[in-house]
Simulated scan of single mutants.
Amino acid sequence: MKQCSKVLLAFALSIGFIGQSYAAGSEQGDRPQGGPPAFSSIDTDGNGEISFTEFSAKDIPHGDHQTVFDEIDSDSDGVITESEFSSHKPPRREN
């Protein structure tokens, strides 16, 4: 019984630490594994829009900044809104 309690306590503590680590990463705007970065991590001035200057300060995995920015900026107004950012689906890689 004592051994079982120790195992359960270790398991509960592990789950707690994993949850805290994930929450801390999310608060910092880190990108989820394999996913896009958080909108707020790119919108550095916090005005609710991503300018090309803000966008170009981040590394992108494929293509050049201007081409990718223009793809996401669906209404071509020169800024990316949170709606445009969240609804953008990057092209799928061919396997």
Results as ranks from 00 to 15, higher is better:
Gly46Glu: 12
Phe52Ser: 00
Tyr22Pro: 01
Ala24Asp: 09
Asp59Lys: 13
Asp45Glu: 10
Gln28Met: 10
Pro37Gly: 01
Ser40Asp: 11
Ala23Asn: 06
Ser51Cys: 02
Pro32Trp: 05
Asp43Met: 04
Gly34Val: 04
Gly48Ala: 04
Ile50Ala: 01
Ser56Asn: 15
Glu49Met: 12
Gly19His: 13
Arg31Leu: 07
Thr44Pro: 01
Ser51Lys: 02
Gly46Thr: 10
Pro32Asn: 06
Glu27Phe: 07
Arg31Pro: 03
Thr44Phe: 05
Ala24Gln: 13
Phe39Gln: 04
Lys58Phe: 15
Ile50Cys: 02
Arg31Ser: 10
Gly29Trp: 06
Gly48Gln: 04
Phe55Gln: 00
Thr44Cys: 09
Ser21Ala: 08
Gly19Thr: 05
Gln28Phe: 04
Ala23Glu: 08
Gln28Asp: 11
Ile42Asp: 02
Phe55Lys: 00
Gly16Ala: 13
Gln33Trp: 09
Gly34Phe: 08
Arg31Ala: 14
Phe39Asp: 02
Glu49Arg: 13
Gln33Phe: 09
Ala24Phe: 08
Ser51Trp: 00
Tyr22Leu: 12
Ile18Cys: 13
Gln28Gly: 08
Asp45Met: 01
Gly34Thr: 06
Asn47Gly: 07
Ala23Pro: 00
Pro37Thr: 03
Pro37Gln: 05
Phe52Ile: 00
Gly16Asn: 09
Ala57Asp: 06
Ile18Glu: 06
Gln33Glu: 07
Ile42Glu: 03
Asn47Leu: 07
Gly46Ala: 15
Ala57Gly: 11
Gly25Thr: 00
Glu49Leu: 14
Gly48Ser: 06
Glu27Ser: 11
Lys58Cys: 08
Gln20Ala: 13
Pro36Lys: 15
Lys58Ser: 13
Ser41Ala: 15
Ser41Cys: 04
Gly25Gln: 07
Thr44Arg: 14
Ser21His: 11
Ser40Gln: 13
Ser40Arg: 12
Ser40His: 08
Pro36Ala: 09
Phe39Lys: 06
Glu54Phe: 05
Phe52Trp: 00
Ser40Trp: 02
Gln28Pro: 00
Phe52Lys: 06
Arg31Thr: 01
Ser21Pro: 00
Glu49Val: 09
Gly16Phe: 14
Gln20Asn: 09
